Amino acid sequence: MEEQFILRVPPSVAERIDRLLNESALDDESLDLSFSEDGRNGTFVIGEDHFSASLLDLPGIVESYKTYDDSVLIKTADVGQMIMVREEGDPAPEVVEYRHGLTPPMRDARRRRFRREPDLNPELVRRVERDLLNIMNGGTAENIDILLCWLFANTQEEVGDESARNSRKKAVTAAKPSGTNAGEPERSESDESDDSM
């Protein structure tokens, strides 16, 4: 079973790690990574230097592959978090989710590629829910104007242009003057077809 992680370090630290991995003798410098009790903040040690580290969630899953013959790729892991090592002067991130992905096309991925959460006022949602339950139980709504505005806005978003066209047709039909035959009921197409027989 493989365990994989993404370690993002400053360029100076990356050069030292690369040197350590390429040399056979690892006696000069040692690597260590330890986290505090919260599991999100920790310390990265290389040789005698200590760096602050944070565990951040990535905006998407990164798949890891390996190959034995340079032609067939075998998926080995799904990585959803990254350990970010910071220089001494860099501030600690305030959020637990990293804003960007690992590659340049995934820059600011959360804002550009994923649907935003709706801007809903929780108090308004509670009032509308209470009014709807009241109406379903045979009562009346306390704030009928807010309820109607909310229902109309959501109906237009969900149904789209088709409902707007249908509502305009109904409004035009209702607004038509009845003409000279005010006393006669309107005839449907089926009534007209019966006369032709």
Rank of each mutant, 00 (worst) to 15 (best):
V72H: 10
A25G: 03
E37R: 13
T67N: 11
G60S: 12
D78T: 08
G42Y: 12
F44D: 01
D28C: 05
D78S: 12
D57C: 09
D27Y: 14
D49N: 06
D28M: 08
F44P: 00
F51E: 02
D38N: 15
A77H: 15
N22Y: 11
D32C: 00
K75F: 03
L55C: 07
D27N: 15
G47M: 05
E37T: 05
N22C: 05
G60T: 06
N22S: 08
S71V: 10
V45Y: 06
E29L: 10
L56R: 14
L56V: 02
L21H: 07
K66C: 00
A77N: 15
L58R: 01
E63L: 09
G60Q: 09
D70S: 12
K75M: 14
G60N: 08
I61G: 05
S30K: 13
E29F: 06
K75W: 05
R40F: 03
E23D: 10
A53F: 07
E48K: 12
L58N: 06
F51H: 14
S34M: 02
H50P: 00
V62T: 12
V45R: 14
D78F: 15
S34N: 06
F51I: 01
S36G: 13
L55W: 09
D32L: 06
D49C: 05
T67P: 10
P59N: 07
N22T: 04
H50G: 00
L26P: 07
L58W: 04
E48T: 11
E48N: 13
E29T: 08
G60I: 01
D32I: 00
S24I: 07
D28A: 14
D38Y: 10
E63R: 15
T67C: 12
